[in-house]
Amino acid sequence: MAEPDAALGGPRPPSNTESMSPRGWRLAIVLVLGLVFSAGPLLFSSYWVGLLTQMVILAILAMSLDILLGYTGLPSLGHAAFFGVAAYAVGVLATVHGAGFWTCVAGGLLVGTLLSAVLGLIVSHVRDVYFLMITLALGMVLWGLSFRWIPVTGGDNGISDIPTLAAHSGLPFAGPLALYYVTLLVFIACAGVMALIVKSPFGLTLRGIRENEGRMKSLGFNTWLHCYLSYVIAGAFASVAGVAWAYYNGFVSPTYLDLTASSELFLMVTLGGPATLVGPVLGATAIVLLKNVMSAYTARWLLVLGIVYIVTILVAPKGVWNLGPSGRSR
């Protein structure tokens, strides 16, 4: 998954756009992330295993937004909606209907994906700031729904008592470590599929739309369809993250899909490095880490986080993944 954009095969000089920074920096990032995510949990306390689980789930979510934001160039400020709705589907199925594990998983994925398939019909017509606004608005509507559709969602109290993964799935291993490694497997599968998608002929068209949609149309692409599919794919992977999150936390609440969640997600992608897939993983990891470490040391952690955001944007406008002495002198 190191360089999803290095897609086109054959040997080539290291002068590609989205893989242009020094290899050393990126190798270090991948190495550290790989080590922490594979072996870290064996060394850390269960609390840190929990944080790693969060990072991995949010990494899936951030990568899914990257398909939309980084690759297709569609800036969504409502992406947490699919995450939240999928989590709600699991919550409702598991607690109200007493459904089994696979029903819950399938239900969560289906509801989240179907929702993106329906909303996609609306949002795929607009671009840029209008896309931002309409996704923002739809996200708010869904948040409002989660808050007000009390018989189903439990209102602001949300739905708690979702069974643990081990209890629900009959997995022979219980506890945070087992949950973590199951989540990691899901992450690897999702990352693999997403990396393949962005390398595929279809993935190439998404980047083309980001670069010059007008030219895409005159070349013969139905760009609406491609944007729509991109939106649905992003929604589907966000749903995977939502299902995992429901099992991780054991409850669902409207805050899963509020604006704060969506904008934090947006930051994960932009800070890490859009259109790279690794960047969002880095972004998710860094933000979870910062939030939890920082708040333990200072009450002004929000301020610190804000400064970190600003500094990162100034120092690495293309994201931390693309940081380093630039090779763009040509």
Partner: peptide, 28 residues
């Protein structure tokens, strides 16, 4: 935010090893 509260509770219990906890404001 409930999810944040849960994360912090995990920290207090699993990392800090507190004997007991107190607090909470919202029903959620």
């Amino acid at each position: 935010i409930p999810a944040v509260a849960l994360t912090k509770a995990r920290k207090l219990v699993e990392s800090d090893g507190v004997h007991l906890m107190a607090g909470g404001l919202l029903s959620s």
